[in-house]
């Protein structure tokens, strides 16, 4: 019995909602895994903040071109149809409503769609990168995350206690336990692991889970 989905499985589930030909930005780190799990026959076009559309997989070690990297500073390759552009054009694509989907990680998501994913507080060196830009403009802003923190606290909350990345920007959350939409200031449960009761899921969620119609089973392959 699956107790919770692995990161790969969360990424797989998020990838199923990306349409063929969609323009997609994946946040640095965990969200980058989504690219590996596109359903057969679908090919999204991936955008990176530093000025590439339609980049591909990592090159073999030793054949990197360090002028050809993604936002995570990792070497990438190009797919046929790739394009380069400068940073202002890149963020015009972001804020101008031209991306279909942005998929980001999260420290906290609030029931009104607020996202906190850039700072865990005043300690250390603050760094924001493109996160605050990405949450505005993409037609759909989705989050992939564990349902709870490492010490078991809810990441889906009534209101964020950590510094915000954006206000009311997230529309769907893929967690290790469920798929949840944000509608009208509420978490609306769409899918959950079949073995998990609604009560058990609610107990691990920091705000009320609403249902609208049937809740589907969240079924993901072993990866």
């Amino acid at each position: 019995m699956t107790l919770k989905l692995s990161n790969a499985q969360i990424a797989w589930r998020a990838a199923q909602d990306i349409q063929d030909g969609a323009y997609v930005n994946l946040g640095i780190g965990f969200p980058e895994m989504v690219a590996q799990y596109q359903p057969p026959g679908r090919q999204a076009i991936f955008h990176t903040e530093n000025g590439i559309l339609n980049f591909g997989e990592s090159p073999a070690e030793g054949s990197e071109d360090w002028d050809l990297i993604n936002a995570g500073k990792k070497a990438v390759t190009l797919n046929p149809g790739a394009a380069f552009f400068h940073h202002a054009d890149s963020f015009a694509m972001v804020r101008g409503g031209h991306l279909d989907v942005a998929i980001l990680g999260a420290y906290q998501v609030a029931e009104n769609g607020d996202l906190a994913n850039w700072s865990t507080g005043p300690k250390g060196v603050p760094a924001v990168g493109g996160a605050m830009d990405l949450v505005h403009g993409a037609k759909r802003v989705a989050v992939i995350t564990d349902h709870v923190t490492k010490d078991g606290k809810p990441k889906l909350v009534k209101s964020c206690t950590l510094p915000l990345t954006g206000v009311g920007c997230v529309t769907r959350v893929y967690t290790s336990l469920a798929v949840i939409d944000i509608e009208g200031g509420h978490f609306v449960l769409r899918e959950k692991l079949p073995a998990l009761s609604l009560e058990a899921l609610q107990a691990q969620t920091g705000a009320e889970l609403f249902t609208k119609g049937p809740v589907a089973d969240l079924i993901v392959p072993e990866l």
Binding site: E49, F91, V94, R95, G124, V125, P126, G129, A131, D133
Partner: peptide
């Protein structure tokens, strides 16, 4: 950078990446 910043020897103005570009 981290050491200089934490020692108060360098000032940081943090700007979102797209805002910086624009």
């Amino acid at each position: 950078f981290t050491e200089k910043y934490l020692a108060g020897e360098i000032e940081l103005e943090l700007v979102p990446q797209g805002t910086l570009a624009e």
